[in-house]
Amino acid sequence: MASACDMKNRIQGHPCFGGNHHKNGRMHLAVAPQCNIKCGYCTRKHDCANESRPGVTSRLLTPQEAIVKVREVMASPVVGPIIKVIGIAGPGDPLANEQTFETFELVKKEFPHLMLCMSTNGLLLPESIDRLYEMGLHSLTVTINAVEPEVGAQIYRHVIYHGHHYTGVEGAKILIANQFEGLKRAAELGLTIKVNTVLVPGVNDDQVPLIAERVKKLGAFVMNIMPLIPQAELAHIEAPDEQRLAEVRKANETIIGQFSHCKQCRADAIGLIGQDVTVGESACAVPPQA
């Protein structure tokens, strides 16, 4: 497991892990449409230009289209010089899509200086981490919203694992166990790890410090507590305001470092955080959910 000093050196240039986000940018490639869980706060859209949140993209890319897009962006005299990271964050779960691995291989071969980064729900992380490490993954984000399966069951509607469909506590138990096991193994391999936690008021408030303590012990570098975006099955829950969010972050910063400038980016975000390059102008369309 890498030391805190090593981690700080590794995140230099990575805007989503504490690097200078005012001058360093990232490029997300929307090559992963399928998802293997259903979060109660998630609505994925594959043809969307007017929303700015995780799970949406103007259009899906094949790995071949993705590398062409990377070439175009890196050739831009305006945007190219600021791009330090190539990330895959959806709109589904990257590990549920073989296209993720194909795309990383293409990018690593042609642009070896760029950091490879991925965001996942962690369900398939234990069985995928060695492959990711071997292809040069630099940074990993795992979204963990609960430690206790009974709480997770209120957030996750179902889990599809190795061809089987699980719901309720049973599904949440499998997901949570794999998240922590995968994170532990990733840390042992020396990857830089961020944990995203969606704060769902009245549901997982008391889980946040439990998550913070557990992931810090297992080797996570930083935590990103994000506000719920009320939609889908959790549309009836009011999002936490900035004051509440700040309180929760402060309460947990003594446990693990807190990331506070997240903008809950789209799956096709390009540029500086909060100053993305415009991507498409098509209307939104909802795809079939997992």
Rank of each mutant, 00 (worst) to 15 (best):
A146I: 07
V222W: 12
G168K: 09
E213R: 15
K217T: 06
K45P: 00
N121P: 01
S139P: 00
E110P: 04
K69F: 08
I256T: 08
P209K: 14
V151I: 15
C265K: 09
S58Y: 15
D6S: 04
G92Y: 10
A187P: 02
G202A: 08
Q154M: 10
G19T: 13
L61D: 03
L140T: 04
V203P: 03
L218F: 11
I11L: 07
P230Q: 13
T62E: 07
P15F: 11
T120A: 02
A232L: 03
S119L: 13
K217F: 03
V68S: 08
K38M: 02
P54N: 05
R26C: 11
G168A: 09
A187N: 05
L210Q: 15
T192W: 11
P91W: 09
N97A: 03
L183H: 05
H14D: 15
N145D: 15
T192L: 11
Q264Y: 05
E72M: 13
H165Y: 14
P201L: 12
G25T: 13
H165W: 14
L29W: 12
G19K: 09
V31E: 04
Q243H: 12
D241I: 11
G280R: 14
C39M: 06
M1F: 02
V203E: 09
L199E: 03
F221G: 00
P33K: 13
N9G: 14
S76E: 10
H261F: 10
D206G: 06
Q243W: 06
L228Y: 13
L124T: 04
S52W: 11
R26S: 09
L272Q: 07
T120H: 04
Q179A: 02
H158L: 11
E150Y: 14
G40W: 03
K108F: 09
V79M: 14
E253N: 14
E110F: 14
I229A: 00
H236N: 07
L245K: 05
N145E: 15
H162L: 06
V286R: 14
G40I: 09
G202S: 09
L272Y: 12
A246V: 05
C284D: 06
Y166K: 05
V159S: 02
Q289N: 01
I83D: 01
C42W: 13
F259L: 07
A267E: 06
P287Y: 08
I229P: 00
R214S: 03
I176D: 03
H14V: 07
M223N: 05
G19C: 07
I255Q: 11
L124W: 09
S128Q: 13
V85S: 01
H162R: 15
H162I: 00
V279C: 02
L210F: 03
I37Q: 05
G152L: 11
P287L: 03
A146V: 09
A212R: 12
H261S: 04
A32K: 03
R44H: 01
G87R: 07
K184I: 01
L106R: 11
L210K: 15
G122D: 06
I256D: 02
